[in-house]
Design a protein around this nucleic acid. Sequence first.
RNA 1: GCCUCCUUAGCUCAAUUGGAUAGAGUAUCUGCCUUCGGAGCAGAGGGUUACAGGUUCGAAUCCUGUAGGAGGCACCA
Length: 555
Amino acid sequence: MTLEQLQNEIQKAITAKFGDAFPCAVLQAAPDHVDADFSLSWAMQAAKILKKAPIQIAGEIVPLAEKLPGVAAVSAVMPGFVNIKLSARGYADAVCEVLANPGGCIRKQNLPAKKILFEFVSANPTGPLHVASGRSAALGDSLVRILKAQGYDASSEYYINDAGNQVRLLGESLKARHEGKPLPENGYHGDYLVDIAAKIKDSSGWTAADYSAFAIAELIKTQQDDMVLFRTHFDRWFFETELHKAGAPKAALEQLEKDGKTSKVDGAVWFGEQSDSDKEEDKARVLVRGDGSPTYFLNDIAYHKNKYERGFTELVNILGADHHGYIPRMKKAVEVLGKDPETFKVILHQLVHLNKNGEAVKMSKRAGEFITLRELVDEVGADACRFFFASRTPNSHLHFDIELAKKRSQENPVFYVQYVHARINSIFRALEEKIPGGVPAAGELIKNAGPLPEKLNCSAVLENYSFAPQEEALIRKLMLFPAVLDACVRDLTPHHITTYLMELAGLFHPFYDSCRVINPDDTKTTAARLCLCKAVQDTIRTGLDLIGVSAPESM
RNA sequence: GCCUCCUUAGCUCAAUUGGAUAGAGUAUCUGCCUUCGGAGCAGAGGGUUACAGGUUCGAAUCCUGUAGGAGGCACCA
């Protein structure tokens, strides 16, 4: 029995008794000071509609919940909570469910038919990726993993601005480096262009465009390597030049003009009304400059039109907070394209603040002063990096202390979580030595990283097993994992997973301390505890994998 | 000037979206010299959730205002 199943049963019973004009019944973990496993606040939410006292409604739910399998006791307490205690059978079943679906990560049924496209990082190909891109990458890649694991149709994409002014400027900067001449005004000063210039073998007959193309190709390759190093996968790298080849900006412009959504002022084509309100709300923008060239905004409209044309029904863009002004006009553009603006979502993450020796590090790409993502990964490792970036809600400002991160000390919570995984593994390694031949059934279990072996009857192993309080606490936490994944999808953020993993890891140690797993004189207890360890290990591995962090067998 | 976001334990952050006595890691203090990994465990201290009002059975969460911080307001991308 999973928590979701129990919740559904309660929902059914409540609907049968009270009708369906109410919020959903949600089971949540009971607070520490309450003698219960899970609790329901539904009675208080329904009180107004039912025009009854919450405590009275709660009292009416008690007999309904008492009948459910896996439930040992139910009580109604002021001001109107329904508290539920699980039976030993309920705990045992919960462990079996986790083992049957590794990590309790169950693919959902009856999902809405959505095709979701996540676009993230999409940094200009004018330099190596810096740490802020790491935050985007960690958020986006983790979210795609989480959605896919739950059965959603989600894809990832990186948009490369390989056209426009910055490309020309980049080519000019490279040419200057190659010829040892001074850089152009506003050129790119980073040392990486010196390295790229050194790779040029024969530049005779090169045009400005050739320099640009060479630099872009090199930098895209660098960014792709950086993303591989950061375990971030993109289903597609989309080139802006593809749009231009297909005449997409022109087509988009024609559609907008046909619908009367543009206006001409001073020789430039504008998007939106020239009304004060549109200007104030940042919805009016130039699409085509006075010289006839398209702005990035028109290109972006064409790009998003293209996304919808490829069959995606929901677009999610992950952007740094410095782009927030872009959202209102893009939403308006989506609407004008005839799509529901709700299908265009933006995850805005606040910027990464780097601190070094207590001082803020200012970063400017053009000045060439920045910490690259690669440098950071080389110093602290991809595991710590990914975990750290995934640990914060996108909305919060992320303070990254370089000195602290470089220390690779145990202050980093990622080690705390990984340690539990490795520690469980060492228990499994010790089994053969302590009990030659292993224990019935469970020995089979721990050899398999995948789903439960057919022949293992987990519920038989846990039959009549009496759980210690530390074991119960661990199982309760395991039962909450699917709800954590739901929360990640709901909020479009992976950070609930890292919080959860730290709490789960924190519950394993007291179990480990007070419940010796391997006992040659009691193979029944040994088998039961091995099952529990396996369930914890599966869940940790699944959780870490969803945020792109490794689960080491030893450390 | 206008707009967006943030302010929770010494530090870094949570809080199942309005639920019960606000929780973790880390740091500090006190115990455990460890037969499956001590990168650990048990316990303690640490909070007027920036401030002031409001909404209701109930607020860190919602609404208003104030203070402080970050970012954005191009015929750049």
